[in-house]
């Protein structure tokens, strides 16, 4: 049983809907390969297998280090699961950068679900 831990700023650093598409949110599973623990956004990367078994690297945007920390999420939550299968719920980006999405939640192998971004697909920013 996992809890959901919040990270939801009221005055967003940027406007979600300009950069990401809230109508294109889905669950993506893959192997956690890297985490970039910096501001203004933490980024983490998954090797995701597509329906044709082709693997590609996806980059996911989370909120800032301070927001994650205050939601009880720290770098070791990612470090400890490097190389393991995780499931991210994320919304695809609109920029020219391919395979980039804004993450809402990450489900870890131990069953915990970490909220690493707002509930974008339901209007939160």
């Amino acid at each position: 049983m996992g809890g959901l831990f919040m990270a939801a700023p009221a005055f967003p650093h940027h406007t979600f809907s300009v950069e990401y598409d809230a109508s294109k949110c889905s669950d993506m599973s893959g192997t956690l390969t890297k985490v970039d623990w910096q501001n203004p956004h933490v980024y983490f990367y998954l090797d995701v297998k597509d329906p044709n078994n082709q693997v590609s690297s996806w980059g996911f945007e989370a909120v800032s280090v301070a927001f994650l920390k205050r939601s009880g999420i720290q770098k070791h939550d990612f470090d400890d699961n490097m190389g393991k299968m995780v499931t991210v719920r994320a919304c695809v980006g609109k920029s020219a950068t391919a395979k980039r999405a804004a993450a809402e939640t990450v489900k870890m192998p131990d069953g915990r679900t970490l909220r690493v971004g707002s509930d974008y697909e339901h209007g939160e920013n």
């Binding site: 831990f5 919040m6 990270a7 939801a8 700023p9 009221a10 205050r70 939601s71 509930d119 939160e124």
Partner: peptide, 8 residues
Amino acid sequence: GYSTSSSA
């Protein structure tokens, strides 16, 4: 503090 299920 932060952290509500909505930003309200």
